[in-house]
Simulated assay, not measured.
Amino acid sequence: MMRCRILGHDYRFRADERTMRWSCVRGCGAGGAKTYPTAADARRYAAAFDHRDREDLGTRAPLIGLFPLRILRAMRRRKSA
């Protein structure tokens, strides 16, 4: 899939018993699995890897892609201060 080639895969993680599984939500077929000693470990790692930082969008923006958003937030902070 072209989108995954350009932007990279968008993995989602889940735990099935002791196995953590991941797959790309874009439907390209990429994915895998890893077995852990306990089901609790698998759930913990799946939750940690599946975490999305949507509420921090723009505050820790990458230098290139979201740089304009970072500049806009800095200007707003300066006006309110």
Rank of each mutant, 00 (worst) to 15 (best):
R3N: 10
R5C: 12
R5L: 14
I6D: 14
I6L: 14
L7P: 03
G8Y: 07
Y11V: 06
Y11H: 09
R14T: 11
A15I: 00
D16G: 02
D16N: 10
T19K: 11
T19L: 08
M20L: 08
R21P: 01
C24A: 03
C24Y: 07
V25T: 14
R26F: 08
C28A: 04
G29R: 06
A30N: 15
A30H: 13
G31V: 05
G31Q: 03
G31K: 00
A33T: 11
A33P: 01
P37W: 02
T38P: 04
D41C: 06
A42H: 02
R44S: 10
Y45S: 11
Y45T: 08
A46W: 05
A48S: 10
D53A: 14
D53G: 11
E55N: 09
D56H: 13
D56E: 12
G58H: 03
A61C: 06
P62F: 02
L63F: 09
F67K: 09
R70Q: 05
R70T: 00
I71F: 06
R73P: 01
A74P: 00
A74S: 07
M75A: 10
R77F: 07
R78L: 12
R78S: 09
K79E: 10
S80T: 13
S80D: 14
A81Q: 08
A81V: 07
A81M: 05
A81W: 00
